[in-house]
């Protein structure tokens, strides 16, 4: 891969999506950052883990022309295989992507300047303005994994008069989080598990820093609104005990809103396109009754709760 060698600050962006309604107030754009300090084994966006380009292979779009194999210097293309790419040999040169005419091979990741991202999100301003507190949400990956770029982007969005939100796992230095918070109207803060060991098992890291960051952020003056989100993972954190502990904890921090995000099995295609295994194949969304009981539990603590994050 060719790293961008200019002085200008750039961020590696996976995707910018318009018409987002599940991640903050109003009508929004979502900026998906690449790179994440966590490796949650259920992750919905595995293509955003690395702070590097990724190649995805969509078997259905492939017409079998074989040009990718011809052009690959590393010998990483395995013809007639549903994986297509030997990831251990691939050097991310992107030649195969460039030669593919049907987009069966596609690149994830674009190094963009703040101005470039801003130009994309600003075109949708009439929609932000036409809705209640619509604007931009940084997501990922973890936006704070590219701290300078994320903070600079938020600052510029704010200066452009946009409502700003950040969807974060909370695993960053407190200074970074605080710097971001200065330009934020809303933080969507993930709490994946209250138990430290379980958290480490599922995400690869302890939840200590995440909790400390949240507690400190809550004490700051002029803190943006904080909404806690729990991605409900079957058999991992969707039991009553974990939810009750999480609810008690956020209640003690005087946080008012909670989003329970039901599991969805959609990412399986992405794992396949990236040639990665996924441990949650075949798992289903939680039953409505279970979701409702968790919601009731949280509401008993006076929290405003959604299932799915649409508010």
């Amino acid at each position: 891969m060719v790293l961008y060698m200019s002085d200008e600050l750039r961020g590696l962006i996976a995707n910018i999506q318009d018409y987002a309604v599940h991640d903050g107030y109003g009508l929004r754009s979502l900026v998906f950052f690449k790179g994440c300090p966590l490796k949650c084994d259920w992750c919905q966006n595995p293509e955003t883990w690395s702070l590097d380009f990724d190649v995805m292979y969509h078997e259905k779009l492939c017409v079998g022309c074989g040009r990718c194999a011809e052009i690959c210097d590393a010998g990483a293309i395995i013809p007639d295989s549903d994986k297509r790419i030997d990831r251990s040999k691939c050097n991310n040169c992107m030649k195969c992507v460039e030669t593919c005419s049907t987009n069966a091979l596609s690149r994830v990741g674009n190094w963009m300047t703040v101005e470039q991202v801003l130009r994309v999100v600003m075109q949708y301003k009439p929609f932000y303005d036409g809705s209640d507190r619509g604007g931009v949400t940084l997501s990922g990956g973890e936006a704070l994994y590219q701290p300078k770029f994320a903070v600079s982007l938020l600052k510029h969005c704010k200066e452009a008069g946009l409502h700003t939100a950040l969807e974060t796992c909370g695993y960053a230095s407190y200074e970074t989080l605080k710097a971001a918070a200065e330009h934020l109207d809303l933080v969507l803060y993930d709490l994946k598990h209250m138990d430290e060991l379980a958290h480490k098992r599922g995400t690869g890291v302890s939840n200590k820093l995440i909790r400390e960051n949240l507690e400190r952020l809550c004490q700051e003056e002029g803190t943006p609104e904080i909404v806690i989100r729990i991605p409900l993972i079957p058999g991992y954190n969707d039991d009553e005990k974990n939810i009750r502990e999480t609810v008690k904890y956020i209640h003690s921090l005087k946080i008012k809103k909670l989003d329970l995000l039901p599991f969805n099995e959609l990412p399986v295609a992405k794992y396949k396109a990236l040639g990665m295994p996924w441990k949650y194949i075949g798992k289903k969304r939680q039953a409505d009754e279970h979701l409702d009981s968790l919601k009731d539990l949280a509401q008993a603590y006076g929290l405003e709760v959604t299932i799915g994050g649409l508010w």
């Binding site: 995707n15 999506q17 987002a20 309604v21 599940h22 991640d23 979502l30 919905q44 966006n45 969509h58 259905k60 779009l61 997501s139 969807e167 989100r229 991605p231 989003d259 995000l261 969805n264 099995e265 959609l266 990412p267 399986v268 295609a269 992405k270 396949k272 396109a273 289903k284 969304r285 799915g308 994050g309 649409l310």
Partner: peptide, 25 residues
């Protein structure tokens, strides 16, 4: 595009059984 919270994917790029699940939902 099928959209749920924090996730987006093109329907046609999904596996059949996932598509079936979405249709069901």
């Amino acid at each position: 595009v099928v959209r749920v919270s924090g996730y987006n994917a093109k329907f046609v790029e999904m596996d059949k059984f996932v598509q079936d699940a979405i249709i069901e939902r």
